[in-house]
């Protein structure tokens, strides 16, 4: 499909940043917008969007967990036919809501009393990774490559992005490769490694930090054994845990990793030759300047 700016048919999405991309993950937001612009993807922010409910909603109230996403999906439908999501957790919640509304009659009936619930069902919810692979295609990514980053990358998908497969409807749930495909096309070397879909501890980061430290340490250890320069992620929560907890791991577990964590959009952006400042490079806690300098990446 022809997609870049100036081509016959531009891709247009209702863009749902979700809370994280306006807070802890501004760098994900910045790099997404920059890469989308480079690829000619038209992003219109969902009008008056709110939180998807995240873990707190679905842990407490099934109805709320469907209602919040439904409200956002209906709003998205007013600006485009497809909705673009970057956060794995938001993506999961929106897709789950659609499935529950479809399958659970009590939820459907209750919601239909307060909102045009069928409109929430008609919009197609897409994750950015999927859009880049399916709609843009790796050939296009390869074409846009401006510089060889020379990086060896471990693609970390996290536990939520592809699971459960019946809901997410993405790549091979247990051994996904589509992020690898994108980064390889953009000139990076990616490695097969065993922990690409292990859990990082997600929201336990705040309540049970010690669990997260152990899980994250295991992931970092595996990446280290795979001898990579950095880890690429596609979820703000994964990023937060892998990046933010490295200093704690050093302090509490005595393990030193210092592995820079990037959003895949940041890596793509750099490969496309976009300005680092526009990609939010340097906002993470683990320093990446040294690595970038060593590789001669500008």
């Amino acid at each position: 499909m022809e997609t870049t700016a100036g081509s016959k048919k531009a891709l247009k999405f209702a863009y749902y940043p979700g809370c994280s991309l306006h807070a802890t993950a501004v760098d994900y937001n910045e790099s997404t917008l920059a890469v989308a612009e480079a690829l000619g993807i038209d992003l219109v922010e969902v009008p008056d969007w709110s939180c998807c409910g995240s873990t707190p909603a679905h842990c407490t109230d099934e109805l709320l967990a469907a209602a919040l996403p439904a409200k956002n999906m209906i709003a998205a439908g007013t600006v485009a036919d497809e909705m673009l999501v970057c956060c794995s957790a938001c993506f999961s919640r929106l897709k789950f809501a659609q499935k529950h509304i479809e399958e659970k009659e009590n939820i459907r009936t209750k919601l239909s009393k307060i909102m045009p619930v069928e409109q929430a069902q008609s919009i197609k919810v897409r994750h950015l990774l999927d859009v880049l692979v399916q709609d843009i295609g790796v050939e296009k990514i390869a074409e846009l490559k401006q510089q060889d980053l020379g990086l060896k990358v471990a693609c970390y998908y996290g536990c939520l992005l592809t699971r459960p497969p019946k809901v997410t409807e993405l790549d091979d749930a247990e051994d996904p490769c589509f992020m690898d495909d994108l980064l390889t096309a953009a000139g990076m070397e990616t490695v097969p490694w065993p922990y690409k879909t292990e859990c990082c501890g997600a929201s336990f980061s705040l309540t049970r930090t010690e669990i997260v430290l152990r899980l994250v340490a295991d992931i970092l250890q595996m990446a280290k054994e795979a001898e990579v320069d950095c880890i690429s992620v596609a979820c703000p929560l994964c990023h937060a845990n892998l990046d933010m907890r490295q200093s704690d791991i050093k302090k509490k577990l005595g393990l030193k990793y210092d592995i820079p964590i990037f959003y895949f959009t940041q890596l793509l952006g750099m490969a496309f030759g976009l300005e680092q400042g526009k990609l939010g490079i340097g906002r993470s806690l683990v320093d990446c300047k040294e690595l970038l300098a060593a590789k001669g990446i500008k």
Binding site: P194, Y195, E225
Partner: peptide, 11 residues
């Protein structure tokens, strides 16, 4: 849940 190679072992 999964199997991976580590050295000459399968974990």
């Amino acid at each position: 849940s999964k199997i991976y190679e580590r050295g000459d072992k399968l974990i």
